[in-house]
């Protein structure tokens, strides 16, 4: 242990003190779970929050969704993307906003962190599209939020976590192993606890918990498989930074599940790099 005063129980207690999501998020969840909610109801709610409204419009018109400037109102955005996708987009925008400040004296760099997360979001979504995934609206956000647990560590125990990373880089060890050795708990497990606290959908929770192995409790899961591959690809392509030198080998069963064409990355790399640049401009610069 790095710090004798720091134990797992304390860390789990700190999850309870972790910031909650802004009120718009709960209002949004309530509205969307009500089957009688109309496009206008949802549009009114989003429009009340000027910064969310503007960001939603920018996002919808970006290459991530590909409507290229044709969507001019929140109503239109909702009709094209659907309730779920709009909800997920606002969760992503909100969470990126909350965690955009750097923490001094630590290795945390929010821009590099989110760059990696955005790259994973883009590639996860692309894999979903190519494999005709059923719940495609969850793909982008699941990629974006897969490392939520790292954010927790950086925010709550920044100095201790910086030491974990340093240990991992110096000894060329996988970050998960270093977390286990020095903290006794991993970012995947702690991330799942926060997802529970925030009532995030199960698909996102699974991606946070299982993105490193790509399967959920020994069972194949298309979304988690996609996040697994996207995470490794983003790291190998050098998109953003994940505080880990080593790249793990993909889980073999995941390739079988996704059944990607043998030139999938070669054929899509231009699109990935282009979407990545555009998304960073959109999501990280106000």
């Amino acid at each position: 242990m790095i710090n004798q005063n720091l134990n797992i129980e304390d860390l789990i207690k700190k999850v309870k003190d972790f910031p909650t999501l802004p009120t718009i998020y709960n209002a949004l969840m309530d509205l969307i779970s009500n089957p009688r909610t109309t496009v206008n109801d949802l549009s009114n709610l989003i429009s009340q929050d000027q910064s969310s409204a503007a960001k939603v419009l920018k996002a919808v018109n970006s290459p991530i969704y590909g409507f290229y400037g044709r969507i001019t109102s929140i109503n239109q955005a909702i009709s094209f993307l659907g309730f779920e996708e709009i909800k997920n987009l606002i969760i992503a925008l909100t969470i990126i906003d909350i965690f955009s400040k750097s923490v001094s004296d630590t290795l945390f760099n929010p821009v590099e962190f989110w760059k990696h997360s955005i790259a994973v979001g883009i590639i996860t979504r692309l894999i979903g599209h190519h494999t005709n995934a059923k719940n495609i609206e969850s793909y982008f956000i699941s990629g974006i939020l897969h490392d939520l647990g790292k954010l927790f560590f950086f925010k709550v125990i920044p100095k201790e976590y910086s030491k974990v990373i340093q240990y991992s880089l110096e000894n060329k060890k996988y970050l998960l192993d270093s977390e286990m050795k020095l903290l006794g708990i991993t970012h995947t497990v702690i991330g799942e606890l926060i997802a529970e606290k925030w009532n995030l959908p199960k698909s996102i929770k699974n991606s946070i918990r299982y993105h490193n192995i790509g399967i959920v409790n020994g069972e194949i899961n298309h979304l988690v498989s996609s996040v697994h591959i996207a995470n490794i690809a983003s790291s190998m392509f050098g998109l953003g930074y994940r505080w880990e030198h080593l790249v793990p080998q993909p889980n073999y069963v995941v390739w079988k599940e996704l059944n990607l064409s043998k030139d999938f990355f070669k054929m899509n790399i231009k699109k990935i790099l282009n979407d990545y640049d555009e998304s960073i401009k959109l999501l990280l610069k106000n």
């Binding site: 690809a233 790249v247 043998k262 070669k266 790399i269």
Partner: peptide, 18 residues
Amino acid sequence: RMEWEPRNDNEIDLFNTA
């Protein structure tokens, strides 16, 4: 950065693209 060798077409594609 890899402690492994590509072992199928997908991993070769991933490696070559990287």
